[in-house]
């Protein structure tokens, strides 16, 4: 989970300036989220796929990530078809599914998958740290960037602590069941993690104070824009503009 496998690569996409990546990701997500015409969505899919091809990302890895995201989308399918008014298709007891509901759920599914594909291509090919630095350069409030970065840094440590705790449960023969004992044990586990994380943050803060921390972080390296970055960002912006045209004008009926 924390290995950042996609960051290891040497493609044009990997070398692309992270600041541009964030900008493109933001613009693309916005345009796609507002798109409802199939031709615009199709163009968006082409856009996402060409980014993935450019990054030479492994198909299997992408599929695994898509499956995880679609697990969440599954919940939409449990609700949407039954909650949008329109022409009835079938009934499940008191619930009636509508054509409009299904259409809407399909649209959301396709849309989110296209966006996720583009984000995998753009953002997961950069290390979290470089993303943080790019955010600083893009004038994202420093406190937010620090929160983002510390969350990432210590998720790893918290995950290790979680594993230690679950191992401690296992070696004493704990098996989760539907019982008060199980619920109580899990509550203790979560509580313990919270307390431990709080203690950890306190120690990290103290260590930083000992090294003279005054609320400021420094960047040691700066990004350098090359002509390749400018070319690539122009191309991508053109792509996003094309999607917008397809959505908001009647070039294609």
């Amino acid at each position: 989970m924390f290995n950042e496998v996609f960051t290891e690569g040497d493609s044009l996409l990997h070398k692309f300036d992270p600041r541009f990546k964030i900008v493109i990701a933001a613009v693309f997500t916005l345009v796609l989220a507002l798109s409802s015409r199939w031709c615009a969505l199709f163009a968006g899919l082409l856009f996402s796929l060409s980014i993935l091809v450019m990054g030479k990302l492994p198909v299997k890895g992408i599929c695994i990530r898509l499956v995880m995201v679609n697990g969440l989308i599954l919940f939409l399918w449990l609700l949407l078809p039954f909650s949008v008014r329109g022409e009835a298709i079938f009934s499940l007891g008191p619930l009636t599914a509508t054509r409009e509901g299904v259409r809407y759920a399909t649209l959301l599914t396709v849309r989110s998958n296209i966006i996720i594909l583009a984000l995998i291509g753009l953002l997961s090919t950069t290390t979290v740290f470089n993303l943080g630095r790019a955010m600083v350069d893009l004038k994202v409030p420093r406190k937010m960037v620090q929160l983002f970065f510390f969350t990432y840094r210590y998720l790893h440590v918290i995950q290790l602590e979680y594993e230690r705790l679950t191992n401690a449960l296992k070696i004493r023969g704990f098996q989760p069941k539907t019982s008060m004992h199980t619920y109580k044990t899990y509550a203790y586990l979560v509580g313990m993690l919270l307390v431990k994380s709080y203690d950890r943050s306190e120690r990290v803060r103290k260590a930083m104070i000992c090294r003279g921390f005054k609320g400021r972080f420094y960047n040691l390296t700066e990004f350098h824009l090359g002509y390749r970055d400018l070319l690539l960002v122009s191309l991508m912006l053109l792509g996003v503009a094309a999607i917008g045209l397809l959505q908001w004008t009647r070039i294609i009926y």
């Binding site: 979290v128 740290f129 510390f150 120690r203 260590a207 090294r211 003279g212 921390f213 040691l220």
Partner: peptide, 18 residues
């Protein structure tokens, strides 16, 4: 608790920068 920067160089340089 002590190492919070992403890279070693950054972490070691943190004190002197402060």
């Amino acid at each position: 608790d002590q190492l919070f920067s992403p890279t070693v160089l950054e972490d070691v340089a943190f004190g002197p920068l402060n």
